[in-house]
Design a protein around this nucleic acid. Structure first.
Lengths: 332, 332
DNA sequence: TTGAAAGCGCTAACAA
DNA sequence: TTGTTAGCGCTTTCAA
């Protein structure tokens, strides 16, 4: 910038004014400065700007996801990017892998770079350490899960209601014996979805059979094994409700191997690519990561703009998509 | 930092030394400083550091992808993140959407934040504008596609060889009439894959029939329509080679609708989630986005560390995964 | 082993 | 309308 000022024969402050489109610079000056800037391929240093500016903004936000490569996280990422782009803000992204230590590392790394805000899918049970960052002026938004020991803004899927809808759909098809397969039971979303399953059975007056419930199916293989065991054991269910993506896939593999894919009904929580090309096409309760990301980003920017209303939880509705697997009637 | 110094009763320089683990500070001083820093919840400002430091490093790199939400891009993203994490570097990510203007915006936004390097999937035909940035000291790596009008480091899939392998696999199964469906023909990767298709046919002594070749199937629907037209037209092929992910899905939809999924062989370029759960499971030529991302990041950091060897192109091999659809023999 | 002074590139506050 | 001065938080340089 000094070089530009020298070449244009003006002061640095004038260059700064032109670069920032501040009013009160004569067209002649503006022209000279622009020419010189062009000539020297001048690139504004935003780091230096944010160091000096009163608000200290960096026009950068941090996004902490379970894994940037998983479909749900990356769809959310894209939605956040789109909102940020509209404000000239860029996104630092990082992956957690369900590791609270990694979460803290990422928070520290992003705070050290003075992000204007942080959107995160929290892991672990205690997020009280974040009050310090928030007090220091960094707005926080939590997505997909509620933080532990911290009152904050959250955007969530209606896990319980969604699961209830999915299970009720099976009940409506005539099923009275519905198996539940869920992932890591310590995760709040998994608990909510199980609660929704119980709700639907309760409403229908069906008792919960514990040999029809499996938690902690943390991988596709474990889920497949659990589903196969349930389906080949005594008193097999006529339908399955799978509470997470990978669990759904595991169950599909088990059904396929047993040749039961046209016999046993299946509703999965969370949509996945090509679900409609499976045989039969898979009925799911679809989450809406795009809306979750958009709402979170919009709210974050409102906070950043000074909105200091009370913290709140926004619930993004899920949607049942009937494709075939969930409409199979119980075997006579 | 000034506050920490005041509380600890030392100079800012001493605090700086402790924070940066510089040698030559007495344990007593170190202890006092750490205590004060802890007490004040001191967070180093990396922006200020990089402004002052001789090398100007920000410990941040930029990653410009086709779309952070697409599976190929996001797998690559994750690989880059993993390499960066090992060096305490974070990743700014952005989506291009095949738009050269957006590419320039992202480059400008990242350069303004003084990233230590840039990894990008280029779009458009002219990247000569980047010589300025490179001369200013920002190393550049291109992934997936070759930049236009710019000599640079590139990491690519062996598109031509991979496509040839896929088509040769169909030839080996006895097919002599193999349809080609590709996406946007102006993209270099699409051209390479088409060249591989021609190579395989040429090697087998099979002439290329132009009514068996469709380019510019840019959406799933267009691909499905093109596949259906080809399969229901005069002289339908007994096998299909689809040169891109979405094209493969379109073809699968067409085969399904026509009830030909067990009759017509299919090999697709690029793997996709659940390909092994389709009926029949889909044979593909799988790319390796993880390796592409890792190599690109490793090379970028070597450049950043001063490696000034000649620019080079690294080719990441693809791999044929036979699952069923590609092994269907031609109809008698 | 410790610290004082200068300055990275920019903008706030004020002066001309 | 334009410029001068100071200083953001840190590291470099050099001196004690």
């Amino acid at each position: 910038m000094r070089d530009v000022a020298a070449l244009a024969g003006v002061s640095v402050k004038t260059v700064s004014r032109v670069v920032n489109d501040e009013p009160g610079v004569s067209p002649a000056m503006t022209g000279k400065v622009r020419l010189a800037a062009e000539h020297l391929a001048f690139q504004l240093n935003l780091g230096a700007r944010s160091l000096r500016r009163a608000d200290g903004r960096t026009a950068t936000i941090g996004l902490i996801l379970e894994d940037v490569a998983n479909p749900y996280s990356s769809a959310l990422h894209r939605a956040v990017e789109d909102v940020a782009r509209g404000r000239g803000v860029v996104v630092l992204a990082g992956s957690l892998d369900e590791d609270p230590a990694r979460e803290r590392e990422l928070v520290t790394a992003f705070i050290a770079r003075r992000v204007d805000g942080l959107i995160m899918m929290p892991t672990g049970i205690d997020h009280s350490y974040l009050v310090t960052e928030r007090r220091a002026g960094t707005p926080l938004m939590f997505v997909d899960r509620t933080p532990g020991r911290l009152d904050a803004d959250v955007v969530l899927t209606d896990n319980r209601k969604g699961a209830e809808t999915g299970v009720a759909h099976l009940v409506a098809a005539g099923h009275r014996s519905i198996g539940f397969l869920g992932d890591r039971a310590r995760i709040a979303t998994a608990q909510e979805r199980y609660a929704g399953y119980v709700d639907a059975l309760t409403v229908a007056g069906i008792p919960v059979s514990h040999h029809h419930v499996v938690h902690d199916a943390t991988t596709v293989e474990i889920a497949a094994k659990a589903a196969a065991d349930m389906l080949t054991g005594a008193d097999p269910p006529t339908a399955l409700f799978t509470a997470q993506n990978l669990v759904t896939i595991g169950a599909l593999m088990a059904l396929r191997r047993l040749g039961l894919q046209q016999e046993v009904a299946l509703v999965g929580f969370d949509d996945f690519l090509l679900a409609d090309l499976m045989d039969p096409p898979v009925t799911v309760v679809a989450q809406d990561p795009h809306t979750i990301g958009r709402w979170a980003a919009e709210r974050l920017f409102r906070r950043s703009d000074g909105d200091s209303s009370a913290f709140s939880t926004q619930i993004v509705p899920s949607r049942l998509i009937a494709r075939g697997s969930g409409e199979i009637p119980p075997r006579g």
